[in-house]
């Protein structure tokens, strides 16, 4: 093939820059770093320096203390219930919204965001008003020996409310992008509903689901506002980790407070690491999307 003339000689250099001027770049990168230092690295460092102020043994004592252990247990119990419940709800909601047409679909879709929009404190109050001992429903429950407010069920319900959009939010765009074709193909091939779900739908949304569950779990661990309203702050009974941190702090027990808080930081860092790993997987698999 004959080479065009220009290919032999050196091509002309394009001088016009497409990117922003260097000063803007330096400013933006610098600003980002400053922001990170001020709002993330510094506070994180402070948490740990406070936590270890009275030494390693005091730190261990603070997090080994019975009330602290109870708080950790309650938090983990909450996460263990909330995440599966919201996973089921999230998959069901995303399935319904993306695969069927029904009345009120768009309203439902926008209502999904409500827990994000509403202050968690109000979310907690809603449940107190709904099933607190002063309401008819609440007193009826009380007569039957079921206590929701100021006990574990209330904490779990409030946390479910606050975190339920995470998984559905993650799945809806994914399922919308994937469409119904594969399910329809499976249907014409004779598959039953549960076979379609297990063999086609669930594998297709697997990474999105795991990702949503991680976000949901992280939020469940850290939820303060809604839980604070419904828990009643009974030490050793209805205190989650964030509530326990707050109690210690208000008792001027700063070092112990930060020690327990550091547990939350560890859990958060763990979440971030796992999330990063999943994201990588997600991208690697996304050619299947």
């Amino acid at each position: 093939m004959p080479q065009p003339e220009s290919a032999k000689s050196t091509p002309p250099v394009v001088k016009k820059r497409i990117t922003d001027p260097r000063s803007v770049q330096v400013f933006l990168v610098g600003f980002t770093y400053l922001f990170f230092i001020g709002f993330i690295f510094l506070p994180l460092g402070l948490v740990f320096s406070q936590a270890f102020q009275k030494g390693w043994s005091f730190y261990l004592e603070s997090i080994r203390e019975p009330y602290a252990i109870e708080a950790v247990k309650l938090t983990l119990l909450t996460v263990a219930i909330v995440v599966p419940v919201n996973a089921v709800f999230g998959v069901a909601a995303a399935w319904a919204i993306t695969k069927f047409n029904f009345k009120g679909k768009s309203a439902l879709k926008s209502l999904l965001d409500l827990p994000f929009a509403v202050s968690p404190v109000i979310a907690g109050l809603i449940f107190v008003l709904l099933v607190g001992s002063r309401t008819t429903f609440g007193s009826w429950l009380g007569e039957h020996g079921i206590k929701i407010i100021f006990s574990t069920p209330g904490i779990i319900i409030a946390t479910i409310f606050v975190t339920f959009p995470f998984i559905a939010r993650e799945l809806i765009p994914l399922m919308e992008a994937q469409g119904r074709d594969e399910e329809e193909a499976a249907l014409t091939l004779g598959a039953k509903g549960w076979q379609i779900f297990g063999k086609i739908t669930l594998p297709n949304i697997r990474w999105g689901l795991i990702y949503g569950m991680i976000l949901c779990g992280a939020r469940s661990i850290g939820e303060f506002g809604a839980v604070s309203v419904v828990s009643g702050h009974i030490r050793g009974q209805t205190n989650t980790i964030p509530l326990h941190v707050e109690i210690l702090y208000s008792e001027y027990n700063f070092t112990a407070s930060f020690a327990v808080a550091s547990l939350l930081v560890f859990l958060a860092l763990l979440t971030v690491v796992i999330k990063g790993g999943i994201e990588k997987q997600f991208q690697k698999k996304s050619f299947h999307l």
Binding site: D181, E182, E184, A185, A186, T188, I200, N204, L289
Partner: peptide
């Protein structure tokens, strides 16, 4: 047997 415009093969 149904053949779809965009194949609809099971991607996984």
């Amino acid at each position: 047997g149904f053949v779809f415009q965009h194949y609809a093969l099971f991607r996984r």
